[in-house]
Design a protein around this nucleic acid. Sequence first.
DNA 1: CGCCGTTTTGAGCCTAGTCAATGTACGTGG
DNA 2: CCACGTACATTGACTAGGCTCAAAACGGCG
Lengths: 212, 212
Amino acid sequence: MQVRTAIHLNRAPAMAAGAQIVLRKGEQLFDEGDEAEFFYQVVSGAIRSYKLMSDGRRQIDAFHLRGDIFGLEAGGEHRFSAEAVGDVSVVAYRRSRLEALIQDDPAFRDKVMTATLRNLARAQAHMLLLGRKTAEEKIATFLLDMAERISKDDEHFDLPMQRCDIADHLGLTIETVSRILSRFARSGLIRLLPASRSIGLCNRMALQGLNA
Amino acid sequence: MQVRTAIHLNRAPAMAAGAQIVLRKGEQLFDEGDEAEFFYQVVSGAIRSYKLMSDGRRQIDAFHLRGDIFGLEAGGEHRFSAEAVGDVSVVAYRRSRLEALIQDDPAFRDKVMTATLRNLARAQAHMLLLGRKTAEEKIATFLLDMAERISKDDEHFDLPMQRCDIADHLGLTIETVSRILSRFARSGLIRLLPASRSIGLCNRMALQGLNA
DNA sequence: CGCCGTTTTGAGCCTAGTCAATGTACGTGG
DNA sequence: CCACGTACATTGACTAGGCTCAAAACGGCG
């Protein structure tokens, strides 16, 4: 696992809108326990936010894609880590400024509040998945969710993350993820393009059926 | 499963603080899909918030205890259901008033924002539990968490919920919950008082060890 | 072309689930 | 006060879904 720390130097001089940060694949934005000085919005690419157990087990609680806001905390430090899945660019907002920003700018306040509530709603949906869905249902839900969030043509998309990330997001192993994707491909639900990151949905209805 | 709807009549005349609602064991506060007209704060007792799948599988994403705020939504409707675990009393805040309240009252705004962020942090911790912990670890984590949240004397507490609720919260079955509690009792980690809702922690260190 | 990281596939195992029966607490009514 | 009924909890025997370990296949890139 890569643990290079992000270089926080390429921030533009502080402006109201926030400062841009660029990360390369695998670079870490912040670590669990770090002081929560900033929170972030994704400009392009994907961020994985995750928790680790002492023996290395990992749970990725969310993938943050363009527009998503994350990293805001109730307490003083981050409660999870965040890394770049691929090359990523994010905007950083200084948390100490949040007070002022939401006082002055009701639109911004709304944006932050709504984003936080949406993160919570996503988390709740994901708990149902983790606690109660079968492996097949987990994968089906994941594919439909990703399709909705990143596909342009609604039938085909490139996953930004690898099997290992998918497994750690869904509470499975890479072997199970791989097996079930193969099974779905064999039964004609999806098409696995050779690159293996590229997925075509052939039978959306059937996948939705597995969503129960 | 009881599906009596809460009687929303015993609300005091609208006041800034919100209106009190009393629910009896098993009564429903709101259902997934209901218009999210109010959000709530627990005064006493425990609320379970949960999602159901079409075939009846249930995931309880959280138990809300005294002081906890829940039921605030990004969109127009509730994304989960909420029921009284035992007899409960909550305060309801009209959501349409939120705007005004947080404009006028920075302390209240802070309270709501912090509560929401805390719910999110809880959800993230719970995803790690659901996705990556073993049954024993799940139970150990749950017991320690409950002890922290409801015990007075730090060594002993009464669980407000039954085995079935615990199972649906931890992504297990009642049989597994029961078996592991018995196992913990046999190895001296806990004491199961005859009422079976009453639990004494005998070996906190050992439980914390299982928390990894 | 050959190497390396990633993915796929296979064989066997184990944890937690299922199904079923028994045990326990508690409330009701005789 | 005790018999009974009901709801909840416990325990046991067996099963199965997903994990582990291991090996082979694939794809990208120097």
